[in-house]
Computed example of a mutant assay.
Amino acid sequence: MSEAKLTKTRLRAGVWEGVLSGAADQPELEVLLLGAPIAGVSVVSIPERAGDWAVRVPIPADALSEGVQTFLICDCGTGAQLGQFTIITGVAMENDIRAEMDLMRAELDMLKRAFRRHCLETAG
């Protein structure tokens, strides 16, 4: 199933949904959180779309705890990772890596302007 591609369609009402394309036979998927499998994963063929499968992953309430939780979607037969999704809960944005990167970019821009100004003032 190496040619299979998993595409997220939505996350709604506590269920992650996606489409797995390119699998001729019914795939057997496993979703892991911290190395433990998530129960209730379903893979159903999509009518009139040969080789496409609707994937649904219910997110257990006990998986929603403070911090970052990454779910790995794997092929049970090969062990290959087909995709992943991450849920961030209870963490203020100032502690989020994306916010940190944005802050670093802003500070770098400020530093570049100050350095250029210093170079102009001290040149000649």
Rank of each mutant, 00 (worst) to 15 (best):
M1S: 15
S2A: 12
E3P: 09
A4C: 06
A4M: 13
A4T: 09
K5C: 08
K5F: 03
R10G: 01
R12N: 12
R12S: 15
A13D: 13
A13P: 12
G14W: 05
G14E: 07
V15A: 12
V15H: 07
V15Y: 00
V15S: 13
W16C: 08
W16I: 03
G18K: 03
G18E: 14
L20E: 09
S21I: 04
G22K: 09
A23W: 06
A24S: 13
A24L: 05
D25A: 10
D25R: 14
Q26N: 08
Q26V: 02
E28C: 01
E28K: 06
L29H: 02
L29Q: 08
E30R: 14
E30C: 12
L32A: 04
L32E: 04
G35T: 14
A36M: 12
P37A: 06
I38S: 12
I38L: 11
G40P: 01
G40R: 01
S42W: 09
V43L: 09
V44N: 14
V44H: 10
S45H: 11
S45E: 13
I46D: 03
I46W: 08
I46M: 02
P47G: 12
E48F: 14
E48K: 15
E48M: 14
R49H: 12
A50E: 10
A50W: 04
G51A: 08
A54D: 06
V55P: 01
R56Y: 07
R56F: 10
R56K: 12
V57L: 14
P58Q: 14
P58V: 11
P60C: 13
A61R: 04
D62F: 07
D62E: 11
L64I: 15
S65P: 04
G67S: 10
V68S: 13
Q69M: 05
F71D: 02
F71M: 04
F71P: 01
L72I: 00
I73W: 00
I73Y: 03
I73K: 05
C74K: 07
D75V: 02
T78V: 08
T78L: 14
T78H: 06
G79P: 10
L82A: 11
F85G: 06
F85P: 00
F85M: 07
T86R: 02
T86Y: 00
T86D: 02
T86P: 08
I87C: 11
I87E: 02
I87T: 05
T89V: 07
T89K: 06
V91H: 09
A92T: 15
M93R: 14
N95G: 11
D96I: 06
I97Q: 03
E100S: 02
E100V: 03
M101D: 05
M101K: 15
D102E: 08
L103R: 00
M104Q: 06
M104A: 09
A106K: 03
A106I: 01
D109Q: 02
D109K: 05
M110E: 14
M110N: 12
M110F: 11
L111M: 09
L111K: 01
L111I: 00
K112N: 15
R113Y: 07
A114P: 01
A114C: 03
R116W: 15
R116D: 06
H118S: 14
H118D: 09
C119G: 09
C119A: 12
C119F: 05
L120W: 02
T122L: 07
G124M: 11
G124A: 11
